[in-house]
Design a protein around this nucleic acid. Structure first.
Length: 573
RNA sequence: GCGCCUGUAGCUCAGGGGAUAGAGCAGCGGCCUUCUAAGCCGUUAGUCGGGGGUUCAAAUCCUCCCAGGCGCGCCA
């Protein structure tokens, strides 16, 4: 909760530098935040100086405090020794002034930066498998990838969003086989994705008893690869119908991809890819198949072509990487794909390196944990899956019901319910560290209290409600008014607001949108404390004006932060 | 068998070398003639999976063990 701004950290480090023999970066790195506000805002631990100064840390802290006794900086006003720590108290007025000025100047862009202008980053995310339903499991890649795209864009990157549709592979053989055996055109047209899913499940159920079905499926996929017109026709139909369904979901989620280059898109480059691999001499034939031996690099061998001539997932990934580099000349390429494919990407990246591409180190896998049921894992094959559409519908429905109960007079109920319902689902995913598995729990998804998007949105709506009842905040008076915000709740909130830019950078560097989500919860929590303890409209004019500036700044931070996560911030709810 | 990831309050999770380990949910008790109670305040609750080690300092780093998850040439 105790926070500070990048600027103040730098400035404290600058003040310390003449007193201790360390460079600025090292000092900044050592500076930490005391556990409790009354101890100060920034702390320099003196342990590290102890060996060279040959004195106990506490004595060093006391000495430093003495030497800084009559000094102060632009952002800090005093430094005191507390045991082995030298604690700095920041100047809340200077900090607050600076923060508010930045927010009102940058408005919707506050939190972002332009330092990375023009750098290109390809983000491969969502990438559902055609003929499989869009399950809650695919939500993770979708919302994490989308958030990363928004975050990097805010930092000035040019993001190229690619949906690497799983529109090729043996599952098409399975679907074709199943459709030829049991297919019903009417049911397909009525509800394509669910029906294809039904067939997919049925196929696996039957194949357990009759393994020849697997051979049949393999044969159909082979036909497809060889351009058999009947197979191609099925493929076209299944792909088109599925894509329409996905597009509906993406529209609902407000996601727009630059390219739907699925796996099939790279078929035309496979020959060239295989030729390159052979030319570089990194592949060997084994039992009629083509594989890359990665033993020297501590990795299992990697199959590129089956003995029946069919290519594999990774072969298309190699072709895709080459294609993307040629076309986009990216500075970085992200693959937002589940952690279960870690090995796959290790192999892929190593192969790109072995092929001699000097940009191989720009390829980055962004793994995430899978979503589990309370009982066990979800299995597409067994039909044990929660459909994303169902989750979204229920969540929106609940939001709608709550509105009906608490704010029946609200305009645009449907639009607001959608923003809240979608936000809740998104935030529920994004607020968790992406690397960890998530337990899917209906009760938790359907709870809009506590650490949720609705909580953050509600805080935002409350602010808007106050602002509607007052004349517009006067940004030009920040200099004279910000000094009035001295109450503990005000000071803490103001400090928090100053932290957004730092958090956005951290979230980008670590590829962790959860840092922003957690931050927003802190801001919302602190705002609610303020809300309950500090009246805005009923305060005397100057304080009222100052508080209006504070809450408007808070509103902007909440809206911007939610925006970076792909979540809307309604003005009323 | 080998490799990677995870183990923190009853539950779901933050924190990932530093000062008394934090939230939310659930439970209990308060707060709506006052800016939206999707809120706020109080309270109960923890051998940070276990052992050993490194360090002035370990939930955090190393190592071993235990538990769970994921992966390991003809799926994607």
């Amino acid at each position: 909760m105790r926070v500070h701004m990048i600027n103040s950290k730098r400035e404290v480090a600058r003040s310390l530098k003449p007193l201790i023999k360390m460079d600025l970066a090292t000092i900044e790195d050592l500076l930490e935040v005391p556990p409790r506000p009354e101890m100060g805002d920034l702390a320099f631990p003196c342990f590290t100086l102890s060996p060279t100064w040959k004195r106990p840390p506490a004595a060093i802290a006391a000495d430093l405090a003495r030497r800084l006794a009559d000094k102060r900086g632009d952002f800090w006003e005093r430094a005191v020794a507390a045991g082995p720590y030298l604690n700095f108290f920041l100047d809340p007025q200077a900090l607050g002034r600076e923060t508010l000025a930045a927010i009102f100047k940058e408005k919707g862009r506050y939190g972002g930066a332009t330092t990375s202008n023009g750098r290109r980053i390809v983000i491969d995310y969502s990438s559902p498998n055609i003929a499989k339903p869009f399950g809650i499991g695919h939500l993770r890649s979708t919302v994490i990838g989308h958030a990363l795209s928004l975050i990097y864009s805010a930092l000035g990157y040019h993001c190229i969003e690619v949906n690497h549709l799983g529109d090729w592979g043996t599952q098409f053989g399975k679907i074709i086989t199943a459709f030829k055996l049991w297919g019903d055109e009417k049911r397909l047209q009525a509800d394509p994705v669910n029906y294809l899913f039904h067939l997919y499940v049925q196929f696996h159920r039957q194949a357990e008893r009759d393994p020849s079905l697997e051979d049949e499926a393999r044969l159909w996929f082979q036909q497809l690869e060889q351009g058999n017109p009947e197979a191609e026709e099925y493929w076209h139909k299944f792909r088109g119908l599925s894509l329409e369904n996905y597009q509906r979901l993406y529209r609902l989620l407000g996601i727009k991809f630059d390219y739907f280059h699925g796996e099939s898109h790279y078929n035309r480059y496979l020959e060239e890819t295989l030729a390159l691999v052979k030319e570089k001499g990194i592949a060997v034939e084994s039992e009629g198949a083509l594989l890359v031996d990665l033993d020297k690099h501590g990795l299992p061998p990697c199959l590129l072509q089956k003995k029946d001539g069919a290519t594999l997932y990774i072969t298309r990934d190699i072709a895709a990487a080459i294609y993307r580099y040629r076309r986009f000349k990216f500075d970085r390429a992200l693959y937002v794909v589940g952690a279960e494919q870690k090995l796959h990407f290790k192999q892929l990246f190593k192969i790109m390196e072995l092929l001699g591409f000097d940009w191989a180190d720009r390829l980055i896998h962004i793994p995430f944990g899978l979503i589990r049921f309370k009982g066990g894992r979800m299995s597409t094959r067994a039909g044990k899956i929660v459909l994303l559409e169902e989750v979204l519908e229920k969540s929106i429905g609940l939001a709608r019901a709550i509105i009906e109960e608490k704010n029946p007079g609200l305009a645009e109920k449907d639009r607001v319910a959608q923003a809240i319902g979608l936000g809740a689902v998104r935030f529920g995913d994004l607020s968790n560290d992406r690397i960890k598995d998530i337990e899917f729990d209906w009760d938790q998804v359907m709870d809009f209290a506590g650490e949720t998007a609705p909580y953050v949105q509600y805080s935002h709506a409350r602010i808007c409600s106050i602002l509607r009842k007052a004349s517009p905040p006067e940004a030009e008076k920040i200099g004279e008014l910000s000094g009035l915000l001295q109450q503990e709740e005000e000071a803490t909130l103001l400090m928090l607001l100053g932290l957004l830019p730092e958090r956005v950078v951290q979230a980008a560097q670590a590829y962790r949108p959860s840092l922003i989500a957690r931050y927003l919860l802190e801001v919302a929590r602190e705002f609610n404390r303020f809300y309950h303890n500090c009246p805005v409209l009923d305060s005397e004019p100057a304080l009222r004006a100052a508080r209006l500036l504070l809450i408007d700044g808070t509103r902007q931070v909440l809206a911007n932060g939610l925006g970076l996560l792909g979540i809307e911030a309604p003005e009323e709810m």
